[in-house]
C-alpha cells in the first residue's frame, strides 16, 4: 500500500501490471491506498498541474532543474562578438 502520493506514483510507474490495474479501475486502487482526499482527487484528474499541486510543487520548482538559463546580455558598450555558434557560457543549444 502506498503511504503517500510520491510512493503511489512511483509504484504505478514501476509496475506495468499495477498501472494496468489502475487504468482499469482507478477507484479501487485509490480506495486501497492511504492517499488523502485531495491527493485522490488530483490523481483522478490525471492532470499534471493538479498532481504537481498535490505534490506541493510550485511551477517554479518544476522548472528548476532544466534551469531558467536566461543570461544577462553583455554590459553596455561591449557588444557580443558576432558569428559565435554557442552561447556566452559556451553551452551548446539543442
Amino acid at each position: 500500500m502506498s503511504n503517500n502520493l510520491s510512493d503511489f506514483l512511483v509504484d504505478l510507474a514501476s509496475d506495468p501490471g499495477r498501472m494496468a490495474a489502475f487504468l482499469a479501475d482507478p477507484f479501487r486502487m485509490l480506495n486501497e491506498s492511504s492517499l488523502s482526499e485531495d491527493e485522490r482527487a488530483a490523481v483522478m484528474t490525471r492532470d499534471g498541474a493538479e498532481i504537481r499541486t498535490a505534490l506541493h510543487i510550485t511551477p517554479w520548482q518544476a522548472a528548476l532543474p532544466e534551469g531558467v538559463t536566461a543570461r544577462r546580455p553583455p554590459a553596455k558598450g561591449k557588444p557580443k562578438p558576432k558569428s559565435k555558434g554557442g552561447s556566452k557560457t559556451g553551452r551548446k543549444k539543442k
Partner: peptide
C-alpha cells in the same frame, strides 16, 4: 541528483 518533483526523488532514493 537534481529533479523536479518529490516522486522522482522518492524513486531515486529507493
Amino acid at each position: 541528483y537534481l529533479v523536479t518533483d518529490p516522486a522522482t526523488e522518492t524513486w531515486l532514493r529507493r
